[in-house]
Each structure stands twice: as C-alpha cells, then as structure tokens.
Amino acid sequence: MSEPTVLVVEDEKAIRDMLRMALEVAKYRFIEAENIRDAHVLIVDERPDIVLLDWMLPGGSGLELLRRLKRENNTREIPVIMLTAKAAEDNVIQGLEVGADDYVTKPFAPRELIARIQALLRRSAKDSAQDRIGVNGLVLDSDSRRVFAGEIALNLGPTEFNLLQFFMSHPERAYSRGQLLDQVWGANVYLEERTIDVHIRRLRKALQTDHADYGELIQTVRGIGYRFSSREHS
C-alpha cells in the first residue's frame, strides 16, 4: 500500500520542517506549499489524501482556499485540518462551517496532530457494513460515497457523509455528543463537543431539497444529543 500523501500549507519554514520530520517518521508522504496559489496547484496535480492548512497565509487566508476547495467537485472530498493560532471560538466555528473537518491550535504537539490525521483518514476510508442504506427516499451509497434524495445527488463533505452514515446505520437510538465524537471521529481524538453541533447544522442544511427536508430526520433529543429517525417522537 502506498504512503498517504499529506499536503502542508504553511508559510513558516520551521513549522513545515518540523511537520516533515514528524510525518515522514509516521510513514506519510510529505508535500508542502507556503501560499494558497502553490497549494491549489499541488492539490489539483497531486490529489493529496489530506491537507493541513494554516489560517494565515501570504496572498490570502487559508479560509479562502478552503472555500475554493469545498466549491469544486474534484476537491471537496479531500479532508482538511486547519492549523491556527486563532483560539477564539468564532474563528474555530467559522473554519468548521466553511468545511474544515478538524482544527489544531498552535502551538501543538506533533503526536497529537498525527493522531488526528490517522483518525480522519480512517473515517474517510471506513466502509459501512451496508453498501447502500435507504430511508424515506434518502439513499446513502457507501461504495461511491454519494447521497441521493430521490434522483437528486446531494453535496456532503467527508465528515458530514461519515456522520450521516453512522446515523443511518444506527437509527432510532439517541446518542450524546460525546458518543458521536467517539463513534465518528474516534476515541483518541479530542474535540470540543460543540464541534458536533456545527456538523449537525451543516448536515441538516445539506439534506434540504426543494421537494423535501431530510434534515428533519436528524432529531434533537433534549438533554441527551441527537437521533436519526423517520418516526415522530415526543
């Protein structure tokens, strides 16, 4: 099996060098860019398995590149971890809402970052026990990693796909935010529970069509968390 390719988009050479050493020791193929223009060229040419994207970059912000990647069909499925010195909650939430799958605040420990990369790649590659799951006209195909509402193909990011896949494979049961983090992100990944709320909002929005709102299948269970169900619950 070939080594997974990690693109590091970071303007500070010392951080790139540190990440190169950590990633190569962990058996990843390392490629790098120091601005969003070079990064986009590498993403199109190299198709990395995951992107580590700095928030502040010369020639434009990492958020700008993230928006572009999530708009384009051939790049929207690539998982992205934001590297940011901005610890404020609104910046973290903004990155997640645009499409980031995870974030790491500087300074960070390389081992923690490697653990998050491993968990995210496992999530992206994980197959469901069922190849095709259908509920009320909403169909999830695990092999092609596509979701359909009737004949309409819906646009879901990799994290929203994995979250929906888990929900549809485990309907009618209420899960706490902590349980969802463990099941979808992995028990060794440490994220704030508010991360779940951001991805639930994004998933519900992605499941809305002109003809039906499949986002309503994801129900908020007061005092517990969330449940996927086609039934009415009090």
Rank of each mutant, 00 (worst) to 15 (best):
T75N: 08
F108D: 03
R16W: 00
I81E: 01
I43Q: 01
H199D: 00
L181R: 07
H40Q: 15
V139K: 01
R16I: 04
L42D: 02
L191P: 01
Y103G: 06
E160D: 14
D54W: 04
S144W: 13
A14V: 15
S124Y: 08
L156T: 00
G178D: 15
S176R: 11
W55R: 07
F148G: 00
G215I: 05
L140D: 08
I31D: 03
L83Y: 09
S2F: 08
I93S: 00
L164N: 07
V221P: 03
I200N: 05
R227E: 14
T220G: 09
R202M: 07
R145F: 04
F148Q: 03
A100C: 10
A119Q: 02
I224C: 08
D127C: 06
L69E: 00
G215C: 04
E12K: 15
T105N: 15
R123F: 01
E97R: 15
H170W: 02
V139P: 00
M18Y: 05
R16K: 10
E192N: 12
I224Y: 10
N162P: 05
F166Q: 15
I117V: 09
A26K: 08
L57D: 03
G150P: 08
K86S: 15
V9C: 04
A33S: 14
E151S: 08
N73C: 01
F161P: 07
V44C: 03
I133A: 12
V41P: 05
T84E: 12
R68P: 01
E77Y: 10
R227T: 13
W55K: 05
D101Q: 13
L69C: 01
A174I: 04
L203M: 02
D102R: 06
Q208V: 09
D213H: 13
E160Y: 11
P4A: 13
E72H: 11
Q219N: 14
K13C: 13
L207G: 05
N162Y: 02
M21F: 12
T220N: 06
S176Y: 02
R202S: 05
G137Y: 06
E232F: 06
A22K: 10
Y28P: 08
Q219H: 10
E64W: 02
K70S: 13
Q130R: 04
F30A: 04
Y214V: 00
D102N: 15
L23A: 01
D90A: 05
D131M: 09
R20E: 14
V80K: 06
F167K: 02
V8N: 06
L42H: 11
